[in-house]
Design a protein around this nucleic acid. Sequence first.
DNA 1: TCTATTTTTTGATCCAGATCAAAAATTCTC
DNA 2: GAGAATTTTTGATCTGGATCAAAAAATAGA
Lengths: 187, 187
Amino acid sequence: MHLPPYIKSVANLSDQTEEAISAIFRRDEYPKGHNLYRQGEICQHIYYIETGLARVYYIAENGKEITQWFFADNNFLTAVDSFYHHKPTLVYCELLEDSVIYSLKYSEMEAMLNENHEMARFAFHAVYELAKKLAEYMIAMKFQSAEEKYNALMKEYPKIFQRAKLGYIASFLGITQETLSRIRAGK
Amino acid sequence: MHLPPYIKSVANLSDQTEEAISAIFRRDEYPKGHNLYRQGEICQHIYYIETGLARVYYIAENGKEITQWFFADNNFLTAVDSFYHHKPTLVYCELLEDSVIYSLKYSEMEAMLNENHEMARFAFHAVYELAKKLAEYMIAMKFQSAEEKYNALMKEYPKIFQRAKLGYIASFLGITQETLSRIRAGK
DNA sequence: TCTATTTTTTGATCCAGATCAAAAATTCTC
DNA sequence: GAGAATTTTTGATCTGGATCAAAAAATAGA
């Protein structure tokens, strides 16, 4: 993997550390439909999506799949609590496209954390990226009408409609697929 | 400040580092109504609430205050993006009770990050706590009826009704105050 | 290319919760 | 402790979006 340049600079990493971090990431190509992790499993890795699209979802009490969010190219991704505390995760993560995924095992990261403080700074950054995304999403989604949410998503990430199916996007927005379909048709 | 014991152990900090971290936190007592930060400002600190209650909110387009979330005793709190990237924050943070607040300036933390890798691990942990809280909240709030959200909040944090006013709690839950009042009355 | 399967759209109905308005209760302030 | 200000409750009405059902369109498999 090559670390996104802005991380290197913001986290103030030396060339050497960047090299070390890049080296312990493992590169994989997975097909569409592959699960990075499943509910009940312990998520042992932090992932970085070079290309592709992942969907994080959970199963509600009524049995429906509710999309929690999407992660596209150049994003870090993990089941935060599971990863950090080695507890079973509540959510699934499924790839919606053939994807190139870099992964870093927690145990290896921890080992480097102990001997290299720049590595800790990197870890800080990766979790920060997740937290930021969550906070933005929360503000965006609360108290907006279905149509406003749709417009916000279109503005921020119009390609999502070519990359994920309607039902997934609808549950991400917290509305039904039928409503999303109607909004899109402009009625 | 005394660091919560579980952080010391999970983040695997030495007594010495715990001491150092505790030492650079500043202790303040603020009255109810004080703002830890305001929209448009750069949030320069990471806060830890020893006792008290804070409300993070933003102003929607219609001028209404929308509560994003609450932070009570023994929680870390900051405007993630602003803190990390020194950008103006979009939200306000207001104390709803007289509170004892510990704060740590980013610049000081950064300095320690450079000379002490355990400090970086602590920073990682603090941001992790925020991310976890966000993720849990998101799952809890999506696709639940007003009453389910109310029940979930009551279960998780019943004291909130003695500590924050109804309107704040309602906008936290994404419903109106009137609806919350009716649910509470059991109709 | 034809068929089967999945996904999206459209239609009709209905209800949870919003909105607007005003009364009741609680909390400040001097 | 009386009056003012704030907060909560209650009432009446209305609507955005859910639900259920089925047709149309798109995609995939052989």
